[in-house]
Amino acid sequence: MGKLTIGCFSSLVGSMTLDFAVKLAEAARKKGHDVDMWLSGNGTMLSKKGQRSFKDYSSLEKTITGLVEGGANVTACEACAESRGYHKEDVISSFGRKSMDWYLASCFSADRVLHIGGE
């Protein structure tokens, strides 16, 4: 089995890009691959806990929390999150918060990197 690193820079609300990234991560985990997800820029919105589910908007907190419980590693850029007011206490507890070098280190050991840019 391999390791997939997915970098997500797109926002939770306003595009379906994160929905795609999370579905891809789920599929990779089901096949037994290791998955690292890096949330940066507007993508850090996914790390915010207490997301309210509306049918008109993407709601991924439950899905992504389950993914982490199943072994995926989801880490948000600390600076990107802080600049948006997502402090440590606001972030889903099972998520990591690291600096950008963590993403590059994850890429180092990845078999494939899928870098999904932001808006």
Partner: peptide, 16 residues
């Protein structure tokens, strides 16, 4: 923010 993130991530290689 895209090009800024490219630069900050590239520079982060210094501490990887």
């Amino acid at each position: 923010e895209t090009s800024r993130l490219a630069l900050t991530h590239a520079i982060a290689s210094q501490t990887v």
